[in-house]
């Protein structure tokens, strides 16, 4: 079987499963996805169309309140805050998604090796290493790394955040694999002679997609949070991100100089991204675990 053929068959199989039907009925998931997609598209198109270069200092008069021409005014460097916000949102989202993809791949791989494929001894090794790293608080380690490397790009920042975000995700996936492997359909697949790899890719992963997706959503929001945290400390990348906007507005005392158009809009954008990811997360959670909705009563 060719790789492409496998991929096509795989997609059809996943599409036919119950997950998609449940998801298309979940209002939470749909509204969250819509919100997130619109933020992504607006920031992507907006930052391309914007006539102001956010890398150029003194382009416009500084500290101007919002006008029709500059809907969010200008900052102390004489930059258009609206364009800055568009670029910053795009870059922060980029950090979030890169971390989400990397850590999801790593945690799924490690989770399956530990929980299913690797056997008892490998599981013991992987899960104890994971537990050791789990308790070490990630933000201080990331602060140390970024302070030592100093000049970083967005991709390096994403790699640094990924390097210290995998333990929790890995443990979550592993425990899911452990509970799923005891289910009847896995025994059936084994009895019908499927090998381990096919059981993983054709039985286990399609059933775990909502969990993996929920995990992905929370990883993206965690990464954006970490990016902002590092940014506020002045450890962000050498490009405009949401964290960097906070940093410069704090350094220039935007709070007490009442330059609200500089520091408040990024908070709104952040809350928008965060809420959308939360909606996606809990929508997926409910699909994965239908009891949840009944228990929480909401």
């Amino acid at each position: 079987m060719t790789l492409l053929g496998f991929a096509r068959r795989y997609l059809v199989m996943v599409k036919e499963s119950m997950i998609f039907k449940d998801l298309s009925r979940s209002t939470k998931f749909k509204s969250g996805l819509l919100l997130l997609l619109s933020v992504c598209i607006i920031s992507l198109i907006g930052s391309r169309l914007s006539p102001y270069d956010v890398r150029q200092v003194g382009y416009l008069p500084p500290d101007r309140p919002p006008t029709l021409e500059h809907p969010l005014g200008t900052d102390s460097f004489g930059r258009d805050v609206f364009s800055e916000l568009l670029v910053g949102t795009l870059n922060s989202l980029q950090v979030g998604f890169i971390v989400g993809f990397i850590v999801t791949l790593v945690s799924v791989a490690l989770g399956f090796i530990a929980g299913y494929y690797g056997g008892k001894r490998l599981d013991a090794i992987i899960s104890s290493i994971t537990r050791i790293f789990l308790v070490i608080p990630a933000l201080p380690v990331m602060i140390l790394v970024s302070a030592c490397i100093r000049v970083i790009t967005i991709h390096m920042l994403a790699l640094i955040i990924s390097a210290f975000s995998w333990p929790f995700a890995t443990l979550v996936i592993r425990s899911q694999v452990l509970s799923l492997r005891e289910k009847e359909f896995v025994n059936l697949a084994k009895a019908s002679g499927l090998n381990d790899l096919r059981i993983i890719f054709e039985e286990l992963i399609p059933n775990m997609l909502p969990y993996i997706g929920a995990n992905f959503a929370s990883l993206v929001s965690w990464a954006i949070l970490a990016e902002i945290g590092l940014g506020i400390l002045g450890l962000g990348p050498m490009e405009v991100t949401l964290g960097i906007i906070f940093y410069w507005s704090l350094v220039h005392l935007a709070l007490i100089r009442n330059l609200w158009w500089w520091w408040f809009p990024p908070i709104l954008v952040f809350m928008l991204i965060f809420s959308s990811l939360y909606l996606i997360h809990s929508g997926l959670d409910e699909v994965a675990n239908p009891r949840l909705k009944r228990v929480t009563g909401l």
Partner: peptide
């Protein structure tokens, strides 16, 4: 055991990371 292992890992990280400075 877990506590000692985590402490040792943290100390090692602290020692190694500082050597990333160019």
């Amino acid at each position: 055991c877990m506590y000692l292992a985590s402490m040792f890992t943290a100390i090692t990280l602290n020692f190694v990371i500082i050597r990333l400075i160019p």
